[in-house]
Each structure stands twice: as structure tokens, then as C-alpha cells.
Design a protein around this nucleic acid. Structure first.
Lengths: 199, 199, 199, 199
DNA sequence: CATGAATGAGGTTTCATTCAT
DNA sequence: AATGAATGAAACCTCATTCAT
């Protein structure tokens, strides 16, 4: 290569593609959009990725992994009372929202663009949401167990409802110029909603 | 035409297009998918719609209007206490969910396919969600006013949160084979969540 | 269509493609070679054939069928002595050679271009040659049976050898400007060779 | 280079290219097929050959030379009677078939792949066949001269016919797992066919 | 109104070849 | 000599749209 090294060029391509996919959608994103923006020939793109579908899949898989890592890191059985539970929710919310704030394109790609992809990637994204739902469900079950959540709650549906609120929160953060302050409000709201609504 | 009259044929085209858009996405839906399914020629399509974008926009606008009518019909200032409020929520939830259950394609088109469309249509859908948020916000403000909702709530964010839960509820209903029973569970959950969480 | 009718246009495309394939090979034949020659747009080509492979396969299948019909029409068990046998060989040779003389591109396509095609078509052509070998073998076996051919002959190899001579005969005819006279010489030679060599 | 010396590397490239051309055809053979198989870079290939066409031509010319040497080595005027003639045919057949059995790729490349090459190489291969025909013709003429072959034979066409049989024999040998035994049968058949058919 | 043949802009992808290191 | 990143010509193919009948 010379100037930049091939790993750096690969990253350049990924970032440019990510931006375009976030903004425009798979079909509207042309290979030439990416290469023109980087000032390289379209042939070069194909030295780094097999085809358009390849880079799209690649980007989405990175995002999926990022989120799954958050879920794996946390332990749903950690808190012993409502106060500890709330603290855990706050920590979790911060982690999750920070990932999206850090890479603002992630939301669009994961929530909109991915739904359109080929079956294989669509399934993986659907699986991600199911994983998230189950993850929340475990928290609720633990809270019921420890008696700081009502035993009568519909855990499965509530988990989904919480995912729905979180999704909208993310959407709201993404549209906002000062997401950090808004984040606090949302985390407060979500933890209140969950604890007051379900205890 | 002959047999059916041109209004009926226009409807045929709309319905076929709707089914295809719901299932496949704007770009994956070919004009020939529609015309082949109806047994008519390409050319005929263009006697009824200016182009592909035209019919897509048309379908989405129908849906937007349908939902806006629900919002307009209800009066946020009607209930005087928590019990009446809950009944109103239940009635509203039923109306909203029924529209989607009746036309199962509506969810996919409005929540996924529309997001991808050209800027103009994207804006209209975004506006629809803002309208929904405002609509909910009015309910909450009224509840605060009548003192059956806490005065400290963050009405704007809560409205969005409620929209998020509702979206997930719809998603869940659409995936389910017996949506009517599930609907009851969701309406119960949503009204509980709102009233317990916010009062 | 208008001027020519769609069947005629389809034929035009087939003939032009055939000429190009005969002269140039599958990969060297560009769709634009065909369409430019016909003065139509390349899009039009795709209204008549699915893709390049499609028309190539189509042409070869026509040829295969043509030859198989010749084999089916003749009855290897018809002749009772060497004279009748020779007459049958002459008739058969005439039929076969005439088909190739009539459509001079057939030889190149079947003997050279087809060998390069995808596996499926390659197999069909190989099968055609095996069919031809078996066909000749039956004639030889019948001759042995009727005792106007030696019983010691290696029927399987001889059948192939005869096919080899015939192939070269065709090659020779194709290169020649006055194939009809040359045809007589070849038929004489082949029938002599077979009867004198094997009786 | 180091280890092997550049002449050896050149040979490596030729052999790999030969294998690929035999199996796959000119256009299906990518430069990267060759270099990947050898574990060298693209660029290296171009240190040894001008371009893809160059190495293809080179390989075919080697083969052409090999065959022409066989023809030059033999003397058509050597045999004085049918028995000596037959022995000569047997010797010749063995030599020819052995060359092809030894390098099984030769048949495919010379009989199929070469026909597709650019005009120049096509002409050389055609010339080779003409040389072979002439070579056989001389044998036949000598046999007529010496009176152990009929004087009425059509020497030119018969030479071609013999080439046709030989080609099919080669094809048969190449497809067979035990070519050495099959070779005997073919040599027997060919010499019988020629001597019985033409004397 | 209906038809459907024709069009061609526009995109994706391949791969031989170059050249600076 | 060897490397391999970069190039870009060149091909394939799709499909919305037009328009003459």
C-alpha cells in the first residue's frame, strides 16, 4: 500500500460504508458512493470485500457482537433489593446508551437498515432482539424472586415492553444534539417506570 | 376494462401492491410482480398510477390517514378519574390494535418499509409518530391536571415511552397466530404499566 | 412488436447468436455483438432470453435434438446383406451430412464451442456422442449377426473409430466451398472403409 | 528466488498453468489460480511471462513441437511389404499414444482448449493437423507405390479418416484408467482397419 | 383503456496488468 | 526478483417507463 497500510484502508472503507448505509439504505448505497468518497477506484473496494452484501453483513455483525457483549457482561442475579436493582438498571442503561451515542450510525443500521437485508442477517438481528427480551426477562424474574417486584407481572410481555421503551429512548437520543443530558432523563424515566410500574 | 370497472381495478392494484410491499420492500417489489399477479400488462399499471413511487406513497398515505382518524376521534379530556382513564385507555388500545389486526400488512409497511422511502414520505411518517406522541402527551397532561397522575412525570418522554411499548405490542401481535387473546394481555399490561407506573 | 412479430425477432436473435458462437466462442461472444448486429438495444435481448447461458444452451439443445432425430428415424436391423447394408450407410451418411451442410455453424458449435459450456450442457453433448457410438455399434452387431461382417471385430472400438472418421469428414466438408461433391467422395470412402475393413 | 532458481520456477509456472488450462479453459483460468497454487504473488508471474496469452501460446507451441518431432523421426518410405508396413504402423502408434499417455493434459489442451485461442494459435494447430494428414498421406502413397495398398484409394481423404480414428482413439485412452491395455486394442484395430480396408 | 415490445440508464462485479517499494 | 495494492476497462444484467397499436 504505502501511505496508510491495508488495515487502515479496510477501516476507511468500513466507516464510509457504515455512514452511507446508515443514511441511505442498502439499495441506495452504491459501491461508487463509498469509493468516490474515499477517492479510490471501485476495483479497490473488491480487494477488501467480496461484494456489497459482504460489507453490509460485516458491519451488522460487528454491531450485534457489541450489544451481545453488554448482555454477557451483566449478571441478572446480582441485586438483593429495589435500590440495588435500580442501580443496576442505571448502570446497564448507561452502558447501552453510551454504545449508541458513541457510534450514532448504529441505531439506524440495526433498527432500520438490517430489517431489509437478506434472510440470514435478518434472522440474526431478530435473534438479537429475542436475546435482549430474554435478558430483561431474567432481571424481572430475579426481582420477583427477591420479592421487590410483584409476583403477578407478565414477565414475557413486560420484557418486550421495556425493550420497546428502550428503543424509543435510543431513537430520541439519536435525534438530539445533546444526548448526554437527555440520556439521564431517559434512564431516570425507565428505571422509575419499571420499578414503580412493576413493584 | 369491462368486467370490473376501473375503480375496482385500481383497488386490485393497490391491494396487490400493498401485499408485495409488506412482504418484500420497495426495491424488491417489481411492477411486474404486481401486474403478473393480477394478470394484466405493465402498461395498464401506468394508466392507474404515475409510477412506482406514486403507488407506494399512496398506500402509506392511506395508512397515515387511518391512524390519524383514530387520534382525532378520541378526546383526551374526557376522563375524570383513574378508573375512567383506564377505561379510555382500554377503548383506545382496542381501536388501535384492531386496525392493525384487520390489515396485517399495515404494520410492516408503516414501521419498516416506509422508513426507507424517499425523504418526503419519511417525513410524513415521522410526523405521524410525533402526532401520536403529542396525542399521548395530552392524555398524560390531562391526568396530571385531574390529579390521578403524578405531577412530577416527564410527560414528553413518557409519551414516547408509551409509544415504544405500543409499537412492540403491535409487533408481537403481528407475529402471533391468535392476536385477539394476546391483545387483551397487552392492553391489560399497558394500562397497568401506565397507571401504576405514573400514578 | 409491429414490423416483424415476436417469433421472427426471436429467430433473428437465435440466428445471430448462433453465428457469433460458431465464430467466436461463448466468452468472446458479447451480448452487444448480437444486439448491435440486429440494431436493437441490449435490453431487448433479455426480453427473449433469460441470459447469455440461456440462449447458448437453447441453441445446442436444438442441434442435439436434430441429430438424435436422425438416429431415431433409422432402423439398424433393416439390411440383410452387404449390398443393402452399404445402401443404408449411404442413405444415413447423406442425411447426416446434409444437416451439417445446411447449417454450417452447427459443426463448430457442437464440436468445439459446446465442450466449453457449463457442466450440464457438456454432459448432454457427451451423451450425444455416446448415443452415436451406440447407434453405430448396433449396426455393426447386426452385420455380424447377418454374417456380412466378420465376427471377430471389436464392435465398441470400431464404432468409435467410425465416429472419428465421420467427424473428420464433417470438418472437411465444412472447410470446403463445394461440399456436395466432397460429400459423395466421403460417403464412398466411409462405406468402403467400413465394409472392406470389417467384412 | 533463492531455493529453486529461476528456471525451475519458470517450469513450475508452466506446469501449473498447463494443468489449469487443461481442466478449465483459457478464460476460466485466472492468473491468480496459478499464482495461488504456487504460493507466489501476481507480480511474480509477470516476471516470467508477458501476459496470460503468452504462457498459453507457449504451452501449445511446446506440444506442437513434440508432435512434429514424432513425424520428422519416422520415414514413410521404409517398408517394403504389408508386414513391414503393419510393424511400422504399430511402432508409430505406440510412439504417438505414449506421448499423450505420459502427459494427459496434452489432449485436452491441443484438441479443445487450443481451438478457442486467438487466431494465430488456432492457425498453428490447424497447420499441425494438416501436417499430420500429409504425413499419413505419404505413407499411403508409398504403400500404393509398393503395391501393398490398392491403387484406387483416395489418399487425401483416407489420411484424414485415419487422423479422425486416431483422434477418437486418443480421446478413448484419456478417459480410461488403464490406457496401456486399451492402447494395444486400438493399435490393433487401427492397423487392421487400414490394411484390410485399403489393401 | 389495454397491451407488451423496446428502451437504456445505471448498477455490480471481474480480473489482467501495472508499478512503487 | 518478488510483492501485492491499486487500477479501470469491460462485461453482464435489471427493470421502470414509454409509446405505437
Amino acid at each position: 500500500m504505502g501511505e496508510k497500510g491495508t488495515a487502515a484502508r479496510r477501516l476507511d472503507i468500513i466507516h464510509t460504508a457504515r455512514d452511507s448505509f446508515a443514511e441511505k439504505n442498502y439499495h441506495e448505497t452504491k459501491i461508487s458512493d463509498i469509493t468516490k468518497h474515499l477517492g479510490i477506484s471501485h476495483g479497490t473496494f473488491y480487494n477488501y470485500f467480496k461484494n456489497k452484501s459482504d460489507i453490509f453483513t460485516h458491519i451488522i455483525k460487528i454491531y450485534i457482537k457489541k450489544l451481545e457483549e453488554i448482555f454477557l457482561k451483566e449478571n441478572p442475579g446480582l441485586s438483593n433489593n429495589a435500590i440495588e436493582f435500580r442501580n443496576q438498571l442505571i448502570r446497564l442503561g448507561n452502558e447501552l446508551f453510551d454504545v449508541f451515542i458513541e457510534d450514532q450510525k448504529m441505531y439506524d443500521i440495526l433498527f432500520y437498515r438490517a430489517r431489509i437485508a437478506g434472510l440470514e442477517i435478518k434472522k440474526e438481528v431478530t435473534k438479537l432482539f429475542k436475546t435482549a427480551d430474554l435478558f430483561v426477562e431474567k432481571y424481572l424474574a430475579h426481582g420477583v424472586n427477591k420479592k421487590f417486584l410483584r409476583s403477578s407481572i407478565d414477565a414475557s410481555l413486560n420484557a418486550k415492553a421495556i425493550r420497546g421503551m428502550t428503543t424509543v429512548a435510543l431513537e430520541d437520543l439519536m435525534e438530539n444534539d445533546a444526548p448526554l443530558q437527555l440520556k439521564e432523563r431517559w434512564i431516570l424515566l425507565l428505571s422509575n417506570f419499571i420499578i414503580d410500574g412493576l413493584s
